[in-house]
Design a protein around this nucleic acid. Sequence first.
DNA 1: GCTTCGAAGTTTAGGTCTGAAGTCTTCAAG
DNA 2: CTTGAAGACTTCAGACCTAAACTTCGAAGC
Lengths: 190, 190
Amino acid sequence: MVSAILRLMADTPGPAEPSLEEQIAAYQREFQGLDPQVERVVSALSRLNRRMNVAYGRQTAELGISNAEWEVLKALVLAGEPYRLGPGDLARRLGLTPAAMTHRIDRMVAEGLVTRERDESNRVRVIVGITEEGRAKWLEGLRMATVFEEELLQDLSGDERTQLGAMLTRLLRRVEEAQPDAGGRLTDLD
Amino acid sequence: MVSAILRLMADTPGPAEPSLEEQIAAYQREFQGLDPQVERVVSALSRLNRRMNVAYGRQTAELGISNAEWEVLKALVLAGEPYRLGPGDLARRLGLTPAAMTHRIDRMVAEGLVTRERDESNRVRVIVGITEEGRAKWLEGLRMATVFEEELLQDLSGDERTQLGAMLTRLLRRVEEAQPDAGGRLTDLD
DNA sequence: GCTTCGAAGTTTAGGTCTGAAGTCTTCAAG
DNA sequence: CTTGAAGACTTCAGACCTAAACTTCGAAGC
């Protein structure tokens, strides 16, 4: 209860986001029967993700592109040879609507990151390919990301990293079973 | 009449999102020198978060509100007595701009989830409070979330949950040090 | 060959967010 | 007083997304 007194006395400081532990304490106060163990895992996951996306956003901004655009480049590269996909396929991989994909491709073509052409053998289809510049920006973004990610995990030993990866994979498998439909209408990096 | 046969033939193996392991393999192929251990942790984190947000979104949709609105209710409840905050404070806690907060509060007032009044002692300030209905929806949303979260973690033993929480907390601390400024311009739950 | 259906993209209308430019209130100094 | 500066919120313009209507092409049935 010291904090209450201190807070009364130091009333002016800018009210920031509560810390993870403060938030868990508040949850306990407002809702008995909440497992703090579970809450810590879930809230930490969410906060971590927010911070990671902020970091990625700053990095891609240095390249003059957005996270969203980097995601498109990544999907094209990871698709492998010949590094071309249709808008519909891209939309499914990124978890957004075909309409959004159309707009995004518009912008990226204008910026010289990708190309758009009609499929000659089936003129309804469109093919999106990556340009040299797009590929270069993808690579540079990836380089920056790996530096950040290594820094993020630097406190964890090799064994711990393995354990963490295994546990997260288990959780992921469980939600994927519960959500067989391609869930993912949210902008996010991975 | 023919629909049964048509459905059997209509295989439509629509190209979906690559699995986590496929993605890691593709990364290795396109960029030597990437640590698969690190990549697995980071990608699993991101995918998990996406799935969790989809799940939360479905739950809040059942209540007739959005994730974003539920977040506001949560911030008000977790603030504690008297469950009132200014728009600026709310915006800082949720990680969005004051402009967005104004709009969000507009909608929520119209829906009867929160109240908005001017502070009599300082007429520049505005005070947002939670209504009975808002509080009820927060509680119901939390109940649904805890069921989902318990299900998500059901494969992990108590020890594993503790370990996982501890490791994630360590990662979080590290990014928070690297990003001392309140990072968080992204919609997300926690 | 024509017609109809379905698939792939695009267009349009509307919602929510950001960043920048107001508006209004308070406070301190002249 | 009154004037200027700072703070809190709102308004405005622009970006990007979703849902739904539309356009076009290709394929199957008659």
